[in-house]
Every structure is written in C-alpha cells, then in structure tokens.
Computed example of a mutant assay.
Amino acid sequence: MEVYQHFREEERPFIDQVLSWQSDVEMRFQRKLTDFLNPREQYIFRSITGDSPLEKGMFGGSENSERKRAILAPEYESVDSEDYQLVLLEASYPDKFINLEHRDVLGAFMSLGIRREKMGDLIVRDGRIQIITGNEISDYIRMNLTGVKKANVLFEEKDFSCLLESHEQWQTRDSTLSSLRLDVVVKEIYGLSRNKASLHIDSGIVKVNFRTVESPSFLLQEGDLLSVRGKGRSKIVEIHGKTKKDKFKITTAKLI
C-alpha cells in the first residue's frame, strides 16, 4: 500500500491497526477508543486519519500530556474529554526518607503484568505519585500496586484539577544536518563527537520511541522520541525540508 512508504517497515503493524480502526468505525458506526499512544504513534495516527471525515481527537489528561488516548467516531458524533475514560490515581510517600524516581514506579507498575500502553503520563514529585490510566484497570491498580521499592503506597482516585504540573522544560534548537541518521542526530543534540555517538548506539544505551536501537545508520523521522542513558531525552519536533545544498533543516528539543 502507498501509505507504507511514508513510514518504517517495523511500524507496519501499528499502521495496519489504525487502518483497521478507521475501517471498523466507518462500517459499524461505532466509536473506537485506543490505549495510550506515544508521540510517534500519535503522529502516525494523525497522518493516516487526517483526511478522513470521521470525528477524531487525542487526550491524555491535560493539553501537555505526552502519552494520549485517541478516539475515532462517526462524523455526526462529538467527542468530549470524559469520553477518553481517564482516571487520575495518586499516592503519597515519605520523600524525606525514601527516594523514588520515575523508573521505580514504572517498574512496579509493569511488574503487575500490565502493558505500558495502559498507562498514560506518570509524575513522581514532592512525595507524591500520580498515574493517569484508563478506568478499565484503575481498580486493579489500586488493589495491587501497594508498594514501590521500600515505600508502602495507597492509591486513591483524584479529580483532574489535582493533576501536578510537569516541571519538564524542553529547549528547542534549529539545526541543519547532512543526514537524519541516528548517529548524526545524537551527535548534534547531545554535543558529542560522531564516533562517541556511534559508540553509545552500539552499546545499546540509545532508545528511539522507547525501543533500543543499535544501528547508527537508523533513519529518524518527525515525532521520534530519543533517549540516551545518563544524558536525558530529546525529540524530533519538525523536519522542515532540505536546503539548496541538500541538507536537512530540522527542529529538535532536549529535556533540560
């Protein structure tokens, strides 16, 4: 199919899934609510459904949410924030005695046997843990996620007006690059030599869209989220096109 040529081969299963959702809604006139999509999946979803007359939207608890659920609905329906069936769970812990990080809570969540796609944004700050999830598993989480590292936790449902604001700050930068290869982009964003960037990739500490990529020649696309262990996260915000010298003009952002 022509749509595949715009995306990576490994993204075909997700593309097929989006096309199937779209077809089902058009044929059965029943809306589809997805699990939480990462930024790259959101980009693919928008690209594929953008020209469809179906009603569509994405929401993850706030306008700035990184992970969002999407809805496809018949064009005569309207979509409201309640339709995303989101729940905000919160627990507290003694941060004077126990240091918890994002990865600690995520690991405890994953140990319950729940797929990452069932969980939206996760905030760990000031002695509080907040998890955005779908209402279909919120009770299960409350009953079973009772400890993180050495901290006993009790999750309670909260109104979204209690959602903590993210302290994340992204610093954007416009660049002109010879290639969209992973080693070239990592070199540019993290201020490394190209050889050092390649070594990081070869050693398996670089992820693209939450998946370890060990090929320096891997080509990045708009919407990709990157992380380098020990150096933080970044993303490809926009690819503007090429210069007269056939170089790529892009906008990147790095979490500071």
Score class of each variant (00 low, 15 high):
residue 185 V to T: 12
residue 103 R to L: 11
residue 210 F to K: 02
residue 209 N to M: 08
residue 100 L to E: 14
residue 236 I to G: 12
residue 6 H to R: 11
residue 64 N to D: 09
residue 3 V to I: 14
residue 231 K to G: 13
residue 59 F to A: 05
residue 125 R to F: 00
residue 58 M to Y: 01
residue 146 T to I: 08
residue 225 L to E: 12
residue 231 K to H: 15
residue 205 I to K: 15
residue 56 K to F: 05
residue 211 R to H: 09
residue 40 R to W: 05
residue 34 T to G: 01
residue 47 S to G: 06
residue 236 I to F: 12
residue 4 Y to Q: 11
residue 225 L to P: 07
residue 223 G to H: 15
residue 193 S to A: 05
residue 40 R to G: 05
residue 43 Y to L: 05
residue 202 D to S: 13
residue 249 K to Q: 07
residue 163 L to Q: 10
residue 255 L to P: 00
residue 207 K to Y: 14
residue 166 S to Y: 04
residue 96 K to D: 06
residue 212 T to I: 15
residue 118 K to S: 07
residue 195 N to C: 00
residue 193 S to R: 05
residue 78 S to Y: 09
residue 172 T to H: 09
residue 138 S to H: 06
residue 126 D to M: 02
residue 31 R to M: 02
residue 69 R to E: 01
residue 62 S to R: 05
residue 96 K to N: 00
residue 173 R to D: 10
residue 100 L to A: 12
residue 27 M to F: 00
residue 47 S to M: 06
residue 58 M to K: 03
residue 120 G to Y: 03
residue 33 L to I: 01
residue 210 F to H: 07
residue 86 L to V: 11
residue 68 K to T: 03
residue 177 L to M: 06
residue 100 L to C: 08
residue 138 S to T: 00
residue 62 S to Y: 03
residue 232 G to M: 12
residue 243 T to K: 07
residue 216 P to Y: 02
residue 55 E to C: 05
residue 237 V to W: 10
residue 229 R to Q: 08
residue 213 V to F: 04
residue 209 N to C: 08
residue 134 G to K: 04
residue 136 E to R: 00
residue 190 Y to E: 13
residue 133 T to A: 09
residue 1 M to G: 06
residue 77 E to K: 03
residue 87 V to L: 08
residue 140 Y to S: 03
residue 37 L to M: 01
residue 58 M to A: 06
residue 172 T to Y: 06
residue 57 G to L: 05
residue 17 Q to K: 04
residue 120 G to V: 04
residue 47 S to R: 04
residue 207 K to F: 15
residue 217 S to M: 02
residue 118 K to I: 03
residue 3 V to T: 09
residue 153 V to F: 13
residue 156 E to M: 11
residue 13 P to F: 02
